[in-house]
């Protein structure tokens, strides 16, 4: 039996993917410096969240009534709040809340959105029609209103806030994934899977889902920043994370409003933290979209 000869080109192309992994990251940094800056901000944030216990000079929950409302000084670099808690410490610990809520909401939203989107595209016809109209209903609500409604039903607390923020993400994700999945559904390899007698679940999970991962990842990254902002908004409105947990949105509320003129550090620094985190995620999300966009990526 004839064996196809291998050209040098084929052999080099066949190198294991992992070898190019670091190279791909370096390429990304070189080609998209803004995205790399965003990625850097996120890395710092993750590192801070992981080591907050070591980095923070104080206990985030400890009140020091001797040092209430003190301006930034040598002991309290970013000052203290109305309960005498160290602002820097609470910002460092707050990154944990922000990341947990952001990642949790993005993950849940992406998973459900992807399953609904791919399923809707795969079954098509009436199923698709009904599912998409239900998604339209969710779309009709502004993100914050929908999140508020979920909190109103479920109550406050970190877990419920994650669900509340994931809810508006599901239809957005489902729609983006569906449009990619519609194209994937027409690919001959999906026909081949059907002709092989595979079940619906296997075709959806093994053959279609992995091929819509690029838009899904982009959506999830872009949504991370939005989720952090949304968490802060909910907490600021008193419908998110509850005291005494360290959360950025929470730090902007209450006494921070009351003493905004006499002790502006209470609001400025957590505000900066929120801005920086959202900025970082958006930069990375945008660059990822440009780099991974399936239309540019086909080659």
């Amino acid at each position: 039996m004839a064996v196809t000869p291998q050209t040098v080109e084929e052999l080099t192309r066949a190198e294991p993917r992992r070898a190019g992994w670091i190279g791909a990251v370096l390429d990304f940094i070189r080609q998209r410096p803004l995205g790399a800056i965003g990625g850097g901000i996120i890395l710092v944030m993750v590192a801070v969240a992981a080591t907050a216990g070591l980095l923070a000079p104080y206990n985030p929950l400890e009140n020091d009534y001797a040092a209430m409302l003190s301006a930034p000084n040598r002991d309290h670099w970013l000052g203290t709040d109305a309960h005498g808690r160290d602002v820097l410490t609470r910002i460092l610990y707050g990154s944990r809340t922000a990341l947990m809520v952001g990642l949790g909401a993005s993950l849940i939203g992406a998973v459900f959105g992807a399953l609904i989107g791919v399923g809707s595209a795969y079954f098509g016809g009436r199923v698709d029609l009904v599912v998409q109209r239900i998604m339209d209903v969710f779309f009709a609500f502004p993100v914050i209103i929908l999140a508020l409604a979920v909190v109103a039903i479920l109550g406050t607390g970190v877990g419920n806030v994650i669900l509340a923020i994931a809810t508006p993400m599901v239809p957005r994700c489902a729609r983006v994934v569906r449009s990619s999945a519609l194209a994937v559904r027409e690919m001959p390899y999906v026909d081949a899977a059907r002709a092989a007698g595979f079940g619906h679940r296997r075709i959806i999970l093994r053959h279609m889902l992995p091929n819509v991962m690029a838009p899904l990842l982009i959506m999830a990254t872009a949504f991370l920043g939005e989720a952090i902002l949304l968490e802060s908004s909910l907490s600021f409105l008193g419908l998110g994370v509850q005291e005494p947990t360290a959360a950025w949105g929470l730090m902007l509320r209450g006494a921070a409003v009351e003493f905004a003129e006499s002790a502006p550090w209470m609001a400025i620094f957590p505000g900066l933290a929120i801005s920086l985190a959202v900025f970082g995620f958006n930069l990375l999300g945008d660059s990822l979209r440009d780099a991974l966009d399936p239309r540019l990526r086909t080659q």
Binding site: D191, R206, P210
Partner: peptide, 15 residues
Amino acid sequence: QVIFQDPYSSLNPRM
């Protein structure tokens, strides 16, 4: 079984 025309799109690129 079936063999398709286009050998580029008939195999799942992720497997």
